[in-house]
Simulated scan of single mutants.
Amino acid sequence: MNVSRIFIRKYSLLPNLKPLNILFFGSDTFSVQSFEALQKLRTTAIPGTNLPYVDRIQIVTKPGKWCGRDKSTFKETAIAIASKKVPNVPLIECDNMKDLMGLTDVVTKNNINTLIAVSYGKLIPDQLIKTVPYCMNVHPSLLPRYKGASPIQYSLLNKDKYTGVTIQSLHPTKFDCGEVISQTELLSIVQLLELPSSKNRNMELPLNTSKLTDQLGIKGGEMLQNVITNGLYLAGMHNNPVKPGIKPSFAPRISNEMKRIIWATEDAKTILNKKDVLGPVYTYINCRPVTKKKQRGSANSTQEFTKRIIIHDFSVIDNTNNTISDHLKPGSFKYSTEMGKLLIKAYGPTLLAVDTLQFEGFAKETAEMFINRLHKRGGSTDIEKANFV
């Protein structure tokens, strides 16, 4: 039996693949996972040829920014940092629509035939999409669920059991409205959070958001390799329709207001989940300045004012022993000298046991330091009757 013939027949069912010259749009560590997956295809030959699946990659990302106090730290995107570690990967910075439109010349001069966008954060213009035969987007949800900028955070906030990754075409006028090319199976969020982290995990993100972004990034990179090596991006080759039962929903950009604790409805576990997804949460406390002799024409010196309190580190404990009276409303608090923690009553039979927090305008501090300084900062606030709002 002729072995070479068997080899050719085995791969004759595959479409006629040609090397891809890719313009890759990315920003964060989720996009780095897809970029590294594409890099591996630069050294993997299309069966029956000596040509690689991916010939060239050029990166498009947002410009770096000066951050921190006095703008003393220059911060580049994760994809920019990753690209500089790989030879022969040009980096292009685009900050607005005019810059993006200028990429049509790059496409023409470099024979780009594929656009791939992964967590880029800007809409790729229709005029640019029309210059290439293939375009793809890797999105960390099972579309049409969680269209938008924050699918990972919403899946965690809503305590979904499952999530996944979708590869779709790029829609010329809307985010996440392209034709689905491929989707993962339903992936257990609990199991994903238990998997070991990759080297690309962003430790600056909140705990669970960091873990899930990392794992879905890995899955997205693997699926992108599968789509390319099997030619699923070609017309008529899409093999994985939208999962049944997935209802359309949106995951808009996370706002700072979402980090506020709603004492009347949120139990301690919900607040802890919010912190692990969005980062430190916050609340407010009503303060009243110490009464001073009123000067003619001055405002009332006893008028209340509100200060923000950021709660950084805490755990959840039961209130079954009535540590804080059930008769008190959620948001009531007291300091436990035995535990060295500030105990805050949440909705239901649970408490927040706070280790560190931050009074507006001051540095992060321990619960003991916070309670000792509260009277001075809060003026004539009655600490025994005070509560967060």
Results as ranks from 00 to 15, higher is better:
6 I>Y: 12
10 K>W: 15
10 K>S: 10
21 N>Y: 11
22 I>W: 07
29 T>E: 15
29 T>G: 11
32 V>R: 06
38 L>M: 15
40 K>L: 13
42 R>Y: 03
50 N>H: 08
61 T>A: 07
63 P>T: 01
68 G>S: 04
71 K>P: 01
72 S>L: 10
75 K>G: 01
76 E>F: 05
76 E>D: 11
77 T>E: 11
84 K>E: 14
88 N>M: 07
90 P>S: 04
90 P>A: 08
91 L>M: 08
105 D>Y: 11
116 I>M: 15
120 Y>V: 09
121 G>T: 03
121 G>K: 10
127 Q>S: 10
128 L>Q: 12
135 C>L: 02
142 L>H: 11
145 R>A: 15
149 A>N: 14
152 I>E: 15
156 L>E: 14
160 D>W: 11
162 Y>D: 08
163 T>G: 09
164 G>E: 06
165 V>H: 07
169 S>P: 00
170 L>M: 12
171 H>Y: 09
172 P>N: 00
174 K>R: 12
175 F>C: 09
176 D>R: 01
178 G>T: 06
179 E>G: 03
181 I>V: 12
191 Q>A: 05
191 Q>I: 01
192 L>D: 06
193 L>C: 00
196 P>C: 00
198 S>R: 02
199 K>P: 07
200 N>L: 01
202 N>S: 05
205 L>P: 09
207 L>H: 13
209 T>P: 11
217 G>P: 05
218 I>T: 10
224 L>H: 06
224 L>S: 05
226 N>V: 02
227 V>F: 01
228 I>M: 00
232 L>V: 04
235 A>R: 10
236 G>Y: 04
238 H>Y: 14
240 N>C: 10
245 G>A: 00
248 P>Q: 00
252 P>F: 02
253 R>M: 05
254 I>C: 02
254 I>S: 02
257 E>K: 14
258 M>K: 13
270 T>W: 03
270 T>G: 12
274 K>H: 09
278 L>P: 14
284 Y>T: 11
287 C>G: 07
288 R>C: 12
289 P>L: 01
289 P>T: 05
290 V>P: 02
291 T>C: 06
292 K>Q: 14
293 K>N: 13
298 S>F: 06
304 E>M: 05
305 F>Q: 06
308 R>T: 14
310 I>T: 12
316 V>G: 02
319 N>G: 09
322 N>K: 15
323 T>R: 15
324 I>P: 10
330 P>V: 01
341 K>D: 07
343 L>I: 01
344 I>G: 06
345 K>V: 09
345 K>Q: 07
347 Y>P: 07
350 T>D: 03
360 E>K: 09
361 G>N: 04
362 F>V: 06
366 T>C: 10
368 E>S: 13
371 I>Q: 13
372 N>K: 14
379 G>H: 04
380 S>H: 11
383 I>R: 02
